[in-house]
């Protein structure tokens, strides 16, 4: 079957090649915006960037100990 001179399966390949990837990043962008709104509503509640109070402090301390050695700069 043809559509605009091109087989339908070729149009399908073009759609599969482009649409899911675009949807994926748009969803990721929206999720990030939601997280950012959540963070602005709760400034001490963590998120990316410098550690807020109570943000897995023990884990961060353990990590700092693991990665701080004579070769750290």
């Amino acid at each position: 079957m043809m559509l605009l001179g091109l087989p339908v399966e070729t149009w399908l390949l073009l759609a599969v090649a482009t649409v899911p990837g675009f949807v994926l990043v748009v969803r990721a962008h929206r999720a990030q915006r939601r997280r950012r709104s959540g963070r602005s509503a709760d400034p001490g509640g963590g998120g990316e960037g410098p550690a807020g109070p109570g943000l897995g402090a023990d884990v961060r301390k353990a990590r700092d100990e693991r990665t701080s050695g004579p070769d750290r700069v």
């Binding site: 997280r35 959540g38 998120g47 990316e48 897995g56």
Partner: peptide, 18 residues
């Protein structure tokens, strides 16, 4: 524990201390 903390941070909330 570190991977768990990274995931919690990326979800935008504090992790549960291990």
């Amino acid at each position: 524990a570190e991977l768990k903390d990274v995931r919690a941070t990326l979800r935008g909330r504090a992790s549960v201390p291990s």
